[in-house]
């Protein structure tokens, strides 16, 4: 099981690196919002991995909070995005 945890952590780290690359590189602010949404999803996945690995349930509230933050953030930025590139 420990090996699986390391494998999952490695895959998540690679995915996080790609998403952060797009967040830094993204030509428009919408690309950055999208990439940061994916970063939040990966953080939530990492929280679940932590819960499964250490056999506790402390992060469930954080999971809901993270999805709420992602929703509010992307909706707010998309609402106020303007035409200039």
């Amino acid at each position: 099981m420990t090996v699986v945890m390391y494998v999952v952590g490695g895959i998540l780290a690679v995915a996080l690196a790609f998403a952060l690359f797009r967040a830094v590189r993204g030509p428009s602010i919408l690309d950055r919002v999208l990439a940061l949404d994916v970063v939040l999803a990966i953080i939530g996945a990492a929280l679940v991995v932590n819960m499964v690995a250490n056999r506790h349930l402390d992060n469930l509230v954080l999971l809901v909070t993270i999805s709420l933050i992602g929703f509010i953030g992307s909706v707010t930025v998309a609402r106020f995005v303007t035409d200039r590139k």
């Binding site: 998540l12 995915a15 790609f18």
Partner: peptide, 12 residues
């Protein structure tokens, strides 16, 4: 868990 992690990797 590996399936879920691969979803994240696909998104990245």
């Amino acid at each position: 868990m590996i399936g879920g992690a691969l979803m994240s990797l696909a998104a990245g």
